[in-house]
Amino acid sequence: MQAMVLAARGGPLVLEKRPDPRPAAGEICLRVEACGVCRTDLHIVDGELPDIRLPVVPGHEIVGIVEALGPGVTSHRLGQRVGVPWLGHTCGACPYCSTHRENLCDRPVFTGHSRDGGFATHAVADAAYAFALDGFHDPIAAAPLLCAGLIGWRSLKLAGDGRRIGLYGFGAAAHIITQVCRWQGRDVYAFTRPGDAAAQAHALSLGARWAGSSSDPPPEFLDAAILFAPVGALVPAALRAVRKGGRVVCGGIHMSDIPAFPYRLLWEERQVLSVANLTRQDAVEFLSVAPAAGVITTTKVYPLAAANQALSDLRAGRFQGAAVLVP
């Protein structure tokens, strides 16, 4: 097999040839068809997340075909298309796992972080944390659903049932969740980097009611706002934009420091919430919602060996939607 490997914080990834992996008990081995490139991968390469196992193969939006079953696996079949997300394993015994909050597990394993991920031709995954994609016929289109879609879905659930939803940072997650919001009958207000006319046009083309700069106030108060951009300064900006009792949901795994802001912005029962990881139930829900909502992902495809270029382009915002590596 071949894999793009991160050996040290700061990168770059290096293409390596390795022996083909073999699944252990409870695991499956996939031939990777596509793997999305997520902003979390940037945080891993930059060393902004704790407890990264080095060397590591990044990538946690994996779509592949099952080529081998480890002992005891009956949940999947050879030749089946499956998806592997960020949450790669949980302990099943801590107070969080035992109360249906496995996203907060005390001893989690994360794909492409604490175990090798999908920037490779093959990957091994815990069968209990891999999801059947029998109805998804395009692996490239499906890959961004495995994190951008799942985290976007969990963020939207935490945002509540309000009609007017603001999305700060119009990238992979926002372009998926905009389509879900429109299917649900909600109005989307898209906030982009100042001057990013292409992203604003993309948002409007997907049905956003309004699109503008993150430095601009929306034309009316929002019921909730979701921050996908890892910029702490957007938290007080979003608090200014939401109505009394509104919510601001921080959807990223890493964010720059939130600056001090006057209590008046939080008063009147506004809330600031964070999203941590996902649960398997989130995946079950969203993988039924996405086709029902007619979600169509916008993707830019790169060959596996161009993973560093994909990460660079993501950092600079050089494309709309999501980047996807194809071995």
Score class of each variant (00 low, 15 high):
A159L: 03
W86E: 00
R9P: 14
V188L: 10
Y168D: 04
C250L: 14
A283M: 05
N103S: 10
S213C: 11
H89S: 03
A190M: 03
P19G: 14
L54W: 10
P217A: 14
Y302G: 11
M255E: 10
G294T: 11
R77V: 10
V45L: 13
Q80G: 03
V82E: 00
S213Y: 07
R280G: 06
A208G: 13
R163G: 12
D216N: 12
V63Y: 02
S114G: 06
G149T: 01
G36I: 04
P327C: 06
G245E: 08
L49I: 08
L222A: 07
G92E: 03
V295W: 04
R209E: 14
H100E: 11
R81V: 03
G117R: 04
S75A: 12
F170Y: 14
L287E: 01
A159P: 03
D282V: 07
F191N: 03
T121V: 04
S213F: 08
D216A: 15
A237E: 12
L150N: 04
Q320P: 02
A229H: 05
A305Y: 05
H137D: 13
R77A: 14
L42A: 15
A233K: 12
P236A: 06
L156I: 08
G166W: 00
Q271S: 15
D134K: 08
L146N: 02
N277V: 09
L78T: 11
R280F: 05
P144K: 02
A307Q: 02
I28P: 01
E67H: 12
P218G: 12
I62Q: 02
C250K: 08
A229W: 05
L158M: 12
V45C: 10
L222W: 03
P303D: 06
A143K: 00
A292Y: 07
A203L: 14
Q200M: 13
H113D: 07
S205Q: 13
V37E: 06
T298E: 15
L87R: 01
A24N: 13
V5P: 09
E285N: 09
A141T: 02
P108N: 06
G88L: 00
H60P: 04
R270I: 07
A305Q: 11
A143S: 08
A8K: 15
A203W: 09
C29H: 03
V249L: 11
F319D: 02
T90Q: 02
R9D: 14
G83V: 00
Y263I: 15
A7P: 13
A120H: 00
V301P: 08
S114W: 01
A305R: 14
A260R: 15
V275T: 13
C97P: 07
V249E: 06
D106V: 08
Y129D: 00
M255D: 08
V242D: 05
A120G: 04
P58I: 06
G92P: 02
H113C: 10
A237D: 12
R22P: 12
I226S: 07
A173W: 04
Y168C: 03
H76N: 00
A68K: 04
G59K: 00
W183Y: 15
T297L: 08
A128L: 04
G246E: 10
R270W: 07
V37Y: 03
V235F: 09
L287W: 00
G92K: 02
A130D: 00
S312V: 10
P259D: 07
V248K: 05
